[in-house]
Amino acid sequence: MPLASYALGMMEASVYAPEVFARGLPSTLQSSAVGIVPTGSIADAAVPLLSLQGIGLSFGGVVALADIDLSVLSGEIRAIIGPNGAGKSSLINVISGVYRPGRGHVQLDGISYTQVPTQRLAHLGVARTFQNLALFKGLSVLDNVASGLAYKVRSNFAGQVLGIGRSRGERRDSLSRADQILEFLDLTAVRDRLAGTLPYGLQKRVELARALVAEPRLLLLDEPMAGMTASEKSEMAGFVRAARDRFATTVVLIEHDVGVVMGLSDRIAVLDYGRKIADATPDEVRNDQRVIDAYLGVASDNEDGAGI
């Protein structure tokens, strides 16, 4: 009980944080209709940071993704929506190299991959979060976030044990950067807690912090707001936008809550049964008949389902 109320206090304290951070930053893109070229240069926008060409993926006889094309421009917030089982998470897993697509390839920053090398993902400037929490429960919040910089570590274990060489400097750097991110996402109060002991919403935010600490060029968020309350969702949306504005990070986002997605993203791709059925700005998607049929829904007059 005291734990829960403590967590609640945390939430309330931090509701306005993203706006504070966003203020004064070059965030001309607050309204999604403006366009797709934020802090990056025009040259960046010409070549997409990420593009998928003809991606097909099947598990046995089940087709998870069929002939998906997708381009993500530098600096935009790109949402992927769709009903359950539409292949959204599969798509993120293909982009991050967890799955190897059966067909097609992923082009990242001009280089084409049939399977993105997961081990080198961080070096390529790509970070991601997971649909189900994937924190390191046995580490503190600070160490979880600092682990997002582990890919940079050059010192070996002997140097670390003896405290010689570059190990000390590396540790100092990663801790100070982790602290900055914790402050940015308003997590400083839980800095030294074990990650596994935090309430769900905060764990989601720690995962965002772990992905952000490396200041990735491409951030893949797999349902960052799943299971959150409305106020937590808008808070998280604020953090995502602030992160994009502050680090000029390109964001690919999977989300169920259409309201949040419409307000947050620059362009939206809609998947249904592994196929892309729409790819446009939020306003266009909202009025697309196929999207409405597949996902958004209309006030149903219960055509065939009578009596169910």
Binding site: S96, Q119, F130, A134, A150, R210
Partner: peptide, 9 residues
Amino acid sequence: TAARIIGIP
């Protein structure tokens, strides 16, 4: 999986 993604060898 998360460890591999964030670049731990």
